[in-house]
Design a protein around this nucleic acid. Sequence first.
RNA 1: GCGCCCGUAGCUCAGCUGGAUAGAGCAUCGGCCUUCGAAGCCGGUGGUCGCAGGUUCGAAUCCUGCCGGGCGCGCCA
Length: 573
Amino acid sequence: MSDPVIALLPLFRESLSLAFGDEFAETDPMLRTSKHADFQANCALSLAKTLKRPPREVASALLDRLPHADIIERAEISGPGFINVWLTREYLAKALSEASADLGLTPTETPETVVVDYSSPNVAKELHVGNLRSTIIGDALCRVLEAVGHKVLRQNHLGDWGTPFGMLIENLLEGDVEAGEQSIKNLNAFYQAARKKFDSDSAFAERARNRVVMLQRGDVETLELWKKLVLASTRYFNTIYDLLGVTLRDEHLAGESLYNPWLPQVVEELTARNLAVESDGAICIFPPGFLGREQQPLPLIIRKQDGGYGYATTDLAAVRYRTQSLHATRILYVVGASQEQHLSMVFAAAKVAGWLVEPARAEHVSFGAILGSDKKMFRTRAGETIRLLDLLNEAVSRAQSIVTEKNPNLPPEVQHSIAHAVGIGALKYADLSNDRGKDYVFDWDRMLSFDGNTAPYLQYAHARIRSIFRKGEAEIPSADSVRIVAPEEKALALTLLAYPTVVRDVADSLDPHKLCGYLYELATAFSTFYECCPVLKAPSQSERDSRLVLCDFTARVLEKGLMLLGIESPEKM
RNA sequence: GCGCCCGUAGCUCAGCUGGAUAGAGCAUCGGCCUUCGAAGCCGGUGGUCGCAGGUUCGAAUCCUGCCGGGCGCGCCA
């Protein structure tokens, strides 16, 4: 870990225990970046309360006992009792040099097995904007968790089971099966046709209901048809995943059908242990603390009146599978905010059942909706839901026209690959750079802009750096040639060294927008440096080498950081 | 009706878990291309942090109550 805070921490801990006794050795010195210094320690203010001494006196006591180290250039008390700290340029150069190989990101000492449940589209349905956030956020989190050293198990909880499959299979049988395979290609139309027949044709609806029963029983012919539906869908999903550049593969498919064989025993076990009870003909579990409309306990229905199982049972079986078979200690559900109550009830029930016990825990990685400029649900002008494929194609074609305008002399195939990286990157970044808990407003012009906190701006910063090396035909000098002199070099160095802390913070908080904010800060710090500090035309060879190392380090952090978000970094654009 | 989430510049968003004068981008006004990519950089204008109380050295941040918006609340998943 290259973050200077890590180096500063033991010095302040020692000072704390020297000044106020060993019981304060674990006190958090509250080291933060500062606009008044390189770092500031805020602990004197809060300590003043417990010690009942004036804050500046506390700060002074700490400052007096701060061990001398070659890290600190100077430290002083400021304002009501902040301790401002400036680092030596020698230390920053050394820290950068040591961090160069792995960008300062060393693997965690406490690796875990983390299940990430994300994307989870429905079979026989078109992927639409509603699936976008789960897919993008989930994929970024997987990459970040792996980067800090966790074992990540991606689980694509496909909607591949349940009552809709009765009508879908019957619809498949309406024509001959081969023709059916053709029509599956237009999934929305196929689904809607089935739906329409189900609603208007009572004989068809009856056959559909029977078909569900046959499917549940494992009728061979029915299962064959079901498999056709699933295969056609997953093939289609894969083409979109490839286009989007997400890491989901067939091996990560773990749909609802996977848990089907275990549903009866889940219910039996819960019933046998008196955790679930019969209510209005259904079998329910009433997790403590959940109340409904009339203050009555809220049920989680694990077996319906008709004997069928709903998604609560599947979700419970999935928790059990993930902790007991996959040995996950952390389970992440990248699912929309509307599922909040359902998921907390499932988690509560799983805890009562003993399937979710420490150190294992489940977290709902909630996210808000994508809104149009009218602040309502993002839809086409005609009011229809937007196909994800259309959205992706539009992103690429919009980027394409910008690239051809800005850089017309590049070969067409290079232009296209840049357009893909920029378009898809812009789309993903627009999503990831917003606080995932909130709704956000979708805006093509803003996300594709080269100004502001956007993917194209970061990609541009990266491409500019790469072009320095091309133009200067420069090799990357040895990392220990860094010398920090100019204030812009120092600001850049401090930002670079913060990278590992930011990535770890994201692995913990599951907030990718913090990584976005950091990369934007880095790109602006680089731009400022680049304006002020000539690289290829540096006054001396040693300055040129030092600045080339800073350039290369920055380019690698940008590239790696974007990669963790699932975004490409073209060499030219 | 109850529960959860949200309300920050004209617009779109940050705000490091209670710290210094609340920050960016867009828009607007003004500077910078005979030197490494101007797809860029530097500066100005612009805020009663929804409202009202409370907690304390200190609140956009924590607590309470309102106002406004979204979502959820028994057999779809």
